[in-house]
């Protein structure tokens, strides 16, 4: 395989992994369910996007690459809706967000 493609793929995969790491750290550190939803809908989805991109550039056919890329919007739609449903339910139940003043929390 072309070395340039391989390097590009490796770089994209590593960026993806970094976002996953950030997402997990956020999930462990953020104070309440709303803030944790933020990390899952942003950091993790972006991580998956980069991983899919990294795998798509080294796919053996254009169609395979398209199939991989098709997965991303599906996950985005699902995760936006699920996070909305969870946040809405949490709000209905009266789970109040933990608020801070921006200096520390």
């Amino acid at each position: 395989m072309n070395v340039a493609i391989e390097l590009l793929s490796a770089a994209l995969l590593l960026v993806g992994a970094t976002f996953y790491l950030a997402g997990t750290v956020g999930l462990l550190r953020f104070p309440d369910v709303y803030a944790r939803l933020h990390t899952l809908t942003k950091a993790d989805n972006l991580g998956l996007g980069f991983i899919i991109l990294g795998l798509a550039v080294q796919a053996d056919s254009l169609m395979m690459a398209c199939k991989l890329l098709l997965i991303w919007p599906l996950v985005l739609m699902a995760s936006a809706t699920v996070s909305y449903s969870i946040a809405r339910r949490a709000d209905e139940m009266g789970i109040a967000p933990i608020s801070g003043d921006g200096d520390s929390a």
Binding site: L74, M77, A78, T81, Y84, S85, R88
Partner: peptide, 15 residues
């Protein structure tokens, strides 16, 4: 009917 949920279903079910 929750519009966000309904839209997801309308888009995903054909797929």
């Amino acid at each position: 009917i929750d519009p966000v949920l309904a839209t997801l279903a309308r888009l995903l079910v054909p797929l």
